[in-house]
Simulated assay, not measured.
Amino acid sequence: MSNTFIIEVSSQPAGIVVRGPGGFQFFAASHRFNRLEGQLFRNAREAERAATRLAGGVLPTAA
């Protein structure tokens, strides 16, 4: 099983996730996905879903 996955949204790079002791940590590839930077996910698919929601404006913006 791979330890690193590239996350894309609409064929554009969102970031990578790297497997670690607590799960998969997200590293943003562009400022658009900085809100996910450093977050841990159970798996790569969960990170991809979060990036897709963020790109679609579904996640609330940070204050």
Rank of each mutant, 00 (worst) to 15 (best):
G22K: 12
R49A: 12
E46M: 12
A47I: 13
R42G: 06
A29W: 00
P21F: 12
S30V: 01
A14I: 07
L54E: 15
E37V: 10
T52C: 13
V9M: 06
V17R: 00
S11K: 14
E46G: 13
I7R: 05
G38D: 05
T61K: 09
S30W: 03
N43A: 07
E46L: 07
E48A: 13
L36Y: 12
P21N: 15
G22V: 11
A63D: 08
A62V: 04
V17W: 01
S30M: 01
V9E: 10
P60L: 05
A62I: 02
R45K: 15
R19K: 12
A51S: 14
A55C: 02
L40D: 07
E48R: 14
T52L: 13
A50D: 11
E8N: 10
P21S: 14
V58Q: 13
N43E: 14
A28T: 06
V18E: 15
A50C: 10
I16K: 07
R32A: 12
R45I: 13
R42E: 09
A44G: 08
V17A: 04
G22M: 12
L59E: 14
A55P: 05
A62C: 00
H31P: 15
L40P: 00
P60Y: 03
F26K: 01
R19D: 08
F27A: 03
A29N: 01
R42S: 09
R53K: 14
V58A: 13
M1N: 13
P60A: 05
G22Q: 14
V18K: 13
R35Q: 09
F24Q: 00
G38P: 05
A55T: 00
S30I: 02
A14E: 05
G23Q: 08
P60W: 04
P60G: 01
I7L: 11
A28G: 05
P13W: 01
N43S: 12
N3M: 10
Q12A: 10
V17C: 07
Q25A: 03
F24M: 11
S10Y: 07
A55H: 14
A14N: 05
Q39D: 10
G38E: 05
A55D: 15
F26G: 03
V18T: 14
R53C: 12
G23D: 06
A29S: 03
A51W: 14
A29Y: 00
H31M: 13
N34H: 06
I16E: 13
F41L: 08
V17E: 06
T4K: 11
G22A: 11
V58C: 02
V58H: 13
R45E: 15
V9L: 10
M1S: 15
P21D: 15
G56A: 01
Q12R: 11
N34R: 07
I6T: 10
G57D: 06
P60H: 04
G57H: 09
R45D: 15
R35W: 02
L40F: 15
I6G: 02
T61S: 06
L40H: 08
T4G: 00
P13L: 04
A63I: 05
Q39F: 11
G22H: 15
N43M: 01
R19W: 01
A14D: 10
V58K: 10
H31F: 11
F33T: 09
F5H: 14
P60D: 07
A28L: 02
G20R: 12
A63E: 06
V18Q: 11
A44D: 14
S11H: 11
F24S: 00
G38H: 02
G38K: 03
